[in-house]
């Protein structure tokens, strides 16, 4: 009979628990079932204003550059840098993602992502856009892969 022991330091591993994508999705699904789409929007709004508070201040200061840097950083953390392409000008940040890391993961383990991917982007990035004095536009979203095209455009530049 053996005594199994596993001893790890935080630095032994990268922080990347992809199951948490499923957990976000399960949370949104549950809120919709009990509080409707209004509840989903409200939860996403509260989360964004609370968690991203320093980021929103940064976006107010530095505008679209801060949003672009955030997206680059988060896709790197997800080991999904290959999915992200963007073009940044003074007036517009145009983004194209080849896949959503969470959608890719959930499908890889046989789960069906909820319908809330596009709304999540619209609420979270909509608040980012507002902080930058921009309008957010989700031009396309592929439910199978989570691939998306979206932009943040200065309101005076938006046509």
């Amino acid at each position: 009979m053996a005594l199994l022991v596993m001893d790890r330091k935080a630095s032994d591993n990268k922080y990347l628990h992809l199951d948490f994508h499923s957990s976000v999705d399960n949370g949104l699904r549950y809120v919709c079932e009990h509080y409707g789409e209004k509840g989903v929007r409200e939860l996403l709004r509260r989360y964004t204003l609370a968690y991203h508070k320093p980021r929103l201040e940064d976006i107010r200061r530095r505008g679209l550059t801060a949003i672009a840097e955030y997206l680059k950083d988060i896709y790197e953390k997800e080991d999904a840098s290959d999915a992200l392409r963007y073009t940044l000008t003074d007036a517009c940040l145009t983004v194209e993602t080849a896949y959503h890391p969470g959608v890719r993961y959930m499908r890889s383990v046989g789960e069906t992502p909820s319908e809330w991917g596009p709304l999540t982007m619209q609420v979270v990035y909509g608040i980012f856009a507002e902080a930058a004095g921009c309008a957010f536009s989700l031009r396309s979203y592929d439910e199978q892969t989570g691939a998306a095209k979206f932009s943040f455009a200065k309101k005076e530049a938006a046509v």
Binding site: Y47, E78, H100, T120
Partner: peptide, 8 residues
């Protein structure tokens, strides 16, 4: 997107 690193 809400990243899995932002789940908590």
């Amino acid at each position: 997107m809400i990243s899995c690193t932002e789940f908590i």
